[in-house]
């Protein structure tokens, strides 16, 4: 059959000559490569003691942001879930009641917001899709666990803690 790519070459096979038959030069050549590596710089680092610098746009665990008044920014618009290629995000929306204006920014909010960290591929598309700047992948690594159900992170793990300026301890007074 004719080759489709026209890149087919017939390999010529010849019997080994005397140098090749005694194998010693090949062994010496291989050993020299091995010994050369003893004197090279080691590319690995000793991890827990030494940590490599992170990239500026490293994407870690998600956090749901609050606005300057401490209200949740997320309005459960579903665009993160729509953009998610791994289908890791689910949410249930609810309507803000009277008297909850200090908790949620808009009239709709996410009552349940779950990310399956086993599905998530940390691509950052949710961050890009969010129209309210509510989700950022600015956390650290998602830690290992034993059970699958523990990888479904709810709002308790995702919403960033409230920052209260009055509780801030002033040092150097």
């Amino acid at each position: 059959m004719q080759s489709l790519s026209n890149r087919k070459r017939v390999i010529e096979q010849k019997p080994m000559n005397i140098w090749e038959r005694i194998y010693l030069p090949a062994i010496v050549k291989g050993l020299s490569i091995t010994i050369k590596h003893f004197f090279k710089k080691i590319p690995t680092i000793k991890y827990p003691e030494q940590i490599r610098p992170y990239s500026k746009n490293f994407r870690g665990q998600h956090s749901l942001k609050r606005d300057e008044m401490g209200r949740e920014r997320c309005t459960a618009c579903g665009l993160c879930a729509l953009s998610c290629p791994a289908e890791a995000i689910t949410m249930v929306a609810a309507e803000r009641k009277k008297g909850e204006e200090h908790l949620y920014r808009e009239e709709k909010y996410a009552a349940v917001y779950e990310i399956n960290m086993l599905r998530c591929i940390f691509c950052g598309l949710c961050e890009e899709a969010c129209p309210k700047e509510a989700i950022y992948l600015d956390g650290s690594h998602v830690t290992a666990d034993y059970l699958r159900k523990d990888f479904i992170y709810g709002k308790d793990k995702l919403v960033e803690p409230k920052f209260d300026i009055t509780q801030l301890k002033q040092e150097n007074k």
Partner: peptide, 9 residues
């Protein structure tokens, strides 16, 4: 249907 779900889901 208010806030039940998004149309595209």
């Amino acid at each position: 249907f208010r806030f039940k779900n998004r149309v595209w889901f």
